[in-house]
Amino acid sequence: MAPAATLLAILFLIPIAIVAAYSLLSRGPYGGVMPPWNVENYMRLADPLYLSILWRTILYSFLATAVCLLAGFPLAWFISRSGTRKGLFLALVIVPFWTSFLVRTYAWMFLLRDTGLINSTLQWLGLIHDPLPLLYNPFAVIVGLVYGYLPFMILPIYSTLEKLDPALLEASADLGARPMTTMFQVVIPLAKPGMLAGGVLVFISCLGAYLTPDLLGGGKTIMIGNLVQNQFTAARDWPFGAALSLLLMAVVMAMLMPVLRREKDGLL
């Protein structure tokens, strides 16, 4: 354990502690940090400009999570009911998920840009004259987030549905419930833990998103992740970037706690 403990202490805990310290310092004249110690950086989060970015991040994350839930649940249900081909259908969800996040985001640029596949096809068909503005807007960012994190929703829901006793469905049908009634009265209530876990996983991933808004969004769709990156590079305001990072981390941890508690045996 000692090597892992040393590694995580030096490369994870100490860096986070440095960020925490920076968040309480002031910005130096050439970037960097200097005393005095203060909480000014946290106060600045209330600035309307930053509040609007925070609000947008929450809104996009919420929308993406809602779409993932609505789109992911039926697919998880389909996989859990598909008998011997479960493994195949599950692999079809997992494999694209593991192949390069960057490439998957780039694929949407290829589809959505002005000269992209969707626009050129529509123009070729004569349906539109000028290209539709599909890229660099909130729509593209949310599509990218959904595409990026959909498996985070499907997998936990699938694992709760998988454990569902088929006798319950038969009992419900025998008692005269129609399939839709069974779905809403029996299946969905029992799948709640999976939906909650999936929802939290997607939501926190979206909160920390950087690449998706960076590549698919424009200047008006930046999210917290981009703001953090900007403070550490172009803006050279490390203390404020550090405060933002800690805020992001705190929100993510607070949301994960209930889910981790529920998973008694845990992952480790």
């Binding site: 994870f12 100490i14 550090a242």
Partner: peptide
């Protein structure tokens, strides 16, 4: 088992990438 170690591992997995990146850069 070690609660400290397990929690730290969890934490390193769920911390947003951008935060890990700037924390390492700072270090």
């Amino acid at each position: 088992s070690s609660l400290w170690m397990t929690s730290t591992l969890y934490l390193s997995m769920v911390t947003p990438e951008i935060v890990l990146g700037i924390a390492l850069l700072a270090l």
